[in-house]
Simulated assay, not measured.
Amino acid sequence: MGILTSPIPIQAIKTLCTNCGVRDLCLSIGLSNEDVERLASIVTQRVKIRKGAPLYHAGEPLRSLYAIRYGFFKTTITSEDGREQITGFQMAGEILGIDAISENRHACNALALEDSEVCPIHFPQLERLSHELPSLQSNFNKLLSREIVRDHEMLLLMGNLNADERFAAFLLNLSHRMLSRGYSPHAFVLRMSREDIGSYLGLRLETICRAIARLREMNIVRISGRAVEILNLDALRGLVAGCNRHRQS
């Protein structure tokens, strides 16, 4: 089994939420300690997911949203002919399961890219609590808005940027997210494979490899295996902004 449930007492959950390292990135941002405890009361257990195991599958009914406490995930959809398309990568402080709200069933699959832990938030209870706590409802609305903005950014990425620019934008996105979590924006490890990156960006594997080589040649990044070091963040931003376009080979 890939999923390991770890039931713990409610009081321990409350303490966990109040002191959580990603509290300021989650639904509890800006809530008082008392309101955080009310939110924590609908999180009945933490769930651990082993690397490579699914958190949920497309078509399964909506039961909970999942706040990522630590770890890294990818979400995928599968076409009628069996091809897999990666729709996103999620890390600590982000919420999984929003795709299921409109139809009450998950539209995608969520798989762990490393050993991870999530806090399931029972959705019907979350809806009821949101009516009682305007600040929680506001946070939830902002969360949904961020998902829409992310979709728009992805459309821009796919429609207007060449391969080098798409990969540069991908690295910039990870850099920004690492910084918001208190980590270095210049050095981090890719949890996903190059094939996964290619699927997400709509590029072939060989195109991803060429983009990496060109950014190395420009002394913008240094990439060894999955270890990334951004040498010139301004140049990376300039590339995404189209300040220095390079033709794809």
Rank of each mutant, 00 (worst) to 15 (best):
S116R: 06
P7D: 15
R216V: 13
R63K: 15
R245F: 12
D164F: 07
L16T: 03
M178E: 14
A227N: 09
E84V: 10
S79H: 02
S116Y: 02
I197F: 06
R226V: 09
A241K: 15
S79P: 02
R69F: 14
R247N: 10
I86K: 05
S102E: 09
P9Q: 05
L144V: 05
P134R: 12
L239R: 11
A227I: 10
C17F: 14
Y200R: 08
K48M: 09
A100L: 10
S145W: 10
N104R: 14
I230A: 07
L126V: 05
S193C: 08
A58Q: 06
G21H: 15
Q11T: 07
D99A: 02
L203S: 06
I95M: 00
G159I: 12
V221N: 07
A163Y: 01
L231M: 09
H152K: 15
A241S: 15
A235C: 10
E229Y: 07
T76A: 05
L179K: 09
S41P: 15
G242N: 11
A12P: 01
P120G: 13
D81G: 07
R128T: 11
G93S: 04
L144F: 04
L144K: 04
I86T: 07
G182F: 11
G97N: 08
Q125Y: 06
L179V: 02
T87Y: 03
H106G: 03
S130K: 15
I101H: 01
Q45L: 15
H152S: 14
D151Y: 13
M158T: 08
L171R: 09
A211C: 13
S184K: 08
L55T: 02
L143R: 00
A211W: 07
A110H: 06
P7G: 15
L144M: 11
A107M: 11
F170I: 07
A211I: 10
D99Y: 05
I3H: 01
F123T: 00
I29L: 03
Q125I: 08
G198S: 11
Q125V: 07
R237I: 11
C243H: 14
A100H: 06
E153P: 12
P120N: 15
R194W: 09
I86W: 01
G225T: 10
G21F: 14
P185S: 05
